[in-house]
């Protein structure tokens, strides 16, 4: 009799457990946005997507890529969300507010320090102890003004996924030019040499598959 009740309890547990979500590894993301695109529509869309997709207990950081060497001053905001949904919601609002209020410092000389920003982002993501780490770059890496990475000094990027978003006003910015593709290949090789994963996204709808929400 008791075993039958136990079996029925188990069946009920399995029935209800079937309604629950599968386990998800803790995630952390860092957005590196070109200062020139900070207020662009793709940047807003990417940020909005991440704000709605990120879950309590996960981390999100945003930094602005200005001219010159990357430093702490370029960090807009970085937050590890609380595990309680209500507090996490407040933190998301704070994050959005900080982003909206941010004004990039005027620096007219130099170039975009993508490598430095990546170094910073990877280090920051490492501190979160997240199992899945994402770095998103909203900058045109195919531009000639951006220096190519130094192959001799690869970054340690194990478990890190670097995603280059090459969307500008809804259209692919990287023209199918041989040089631009070559430069992107160089970045890919550099990231993969460091143990990371490289991906180029031309369509923002793909973000839902890369960084799924709830």
């Amino acid at each position: 009799m008791r075993w039958a009740v136990a079996i029925l309890f188990l069946a009920q547990a399995l029935g209800i457990a079937g309604c629950t979500e599968p386990a998800r590894k803790p995630r952390a993301a860092y957005l590196l946005i070109d200062a020139a695109r900070l207020r662009s529509t793709p940047a807003q869309e990417v940020l909005n997507y991440f704000l709605s997709a990120i879950q309590p207990g996960e981390s999100l950081g945003i930094a602005c890529l200005g001219m010159g060497n990357f430093s702490d001053r370029d960090t807009i905001v970085s937050v590890s969300l609380d595990v309680r949904p209500s507090l996490a919601m407040q933190q998301k609002r704070f994050l959005k507010k900080k982003f909206d209020e941010f004004t990039p410092s005027p620096r007219s000389v130099g170039h975009l320090d993508i490598a430095g920003a990546l170094l910073y982002a990877v280090a920051h993501l490492g501190e979160t102890h997240a199992e899945e780490r994402y770095v998103l770059i909203l900058a045109n890496l195919g531009k000639e003004q951006i220096p190519e990475p130094v192959k001799e000094f690869p970054l340690q990027m194990e478990g890190c996924r670097v995603i280059s978003i090459t969307v500008e006003n809804g259209e692919p910015a990287v023209r199918q030019q041989a040089t631009a593709l070559k430069r992107l290949d160089a970045w890919e090789e550099w990231v993969e040499t460091g143990g990371g994963e490289w991906q180029v996204v031309n369509d923002l709808a793909l973000l839902a598959t890369i960084f799924p929400g709830s």
């Binding site: 457990a17 629950t20 386990a23 998800r24 803790p26 309590p56 207990g57 309680r84």
Partner: peptide, 17 residues
């Protein structure tokens, strides 16, 4: 999840569930 947190898991199931 407001009581037990929304990011921890027990096995493959969310703690709140």
């Amino acid at each position: 999840s407001e009581m037990v947190g929304g990011s921890s898991y027990i096995g493959s199931f969310r703690s709140s569930s």
